Amino acid sequence: MYENTFPNKRFKHTVEFLKQHIDTSQSILDLGIENPLSDILKSHGYTVKNTSGIDLDINTSEIKNSQNEVVTAFEIFEHLLSPFTVLKSIKADKLVASIPMRLWFSSAYRSKTDMRDRHYHEFEDWQFDWLLEKAGWKIIATDKWTNPTKKIGIRPILRWFTPRYYIVYAERYSKSKS
């Protein structure tokens, strides 16, 4: 089902990580509109509801009103101006989130045609950890993986060795600590 190509490699790692930490009996709110990864999660037995496509920087009502036990956020926080606000609004006690990592040899992604498809943040792993901890999350497990390409050049070679994606499983600190 998966090949070692983008986005299949990313999807494979994401599903494997999720299976290690989240039981299929737990309902998931996935931040962002329905997408191929949410379909893959459903095919693995997960119950997944996606947000409707509202601007989460402005309106977090779907997150605040969710009764889901787990929130997933796969490559979405880099698109938000204020990921802290979204992280604080989550009512679920479990979070699985992944980000594309900031690469020292590559500038931040910016679409020239889609104003919504831009990265306001590209985190290093420690920066994302700090953001999660400040928003009241305790990091339980993490993983990283590379995103090699078959292109020729210095940057494509560096992509074979430099982790591009970072994924975190976190649990909310007890209410008395937040």
Rank of each mutant, 00 (worst) to 15 (best):
Q26R: 04
P7M: 02
Q67A: 09
S98A: 05
R10H: 11
W126H: 10
I139W: 07
K134A: 14
A73N: 04
R159E: 04
T113V: 13
S82A: 14
V71M: 07
F74Y: 05
K177I: 09
P83S: 07
L158W: 11
Y46N: 01
Y169M: 11
D93P: 03
S89L: 00
Y120S: 01
E69V: 00
N147A: 13
K49E: 08
V86T: 14
L132M: 11
F105K: 01
F105E: 10
Q127M: 12
H13W: 13
R155E: 13
T24I: 13
F6T: 08
K112S: 14
M1K: 07
I54Y: 11
Y173P: 03
R102P: 04
N8W: 11
P36V: 07
H79D: 03
I28M: 12
T85L: 15
H21T: 02
K177Q: 09
A73E: 09
R110C: 11
N68T: 06
L18W: 02
T51C: 12
S111Q: 03
P148A: 01
K177T: 09
E124K: 14
E133R: 15
S98C: 00
I40R: 12
D39C: 13
T60G: 12
K150I: 05
K42D: 13
S25V: 11
G53E: 08
T5L: 15
S82I: 14
N50V: 03
T5V: 13
K151F: 10
L18Y: 02
K12A: 05
I58M: 08
S174G: 09
F123W: 01
E133K: 15
E124H: 11
G153Q: 13
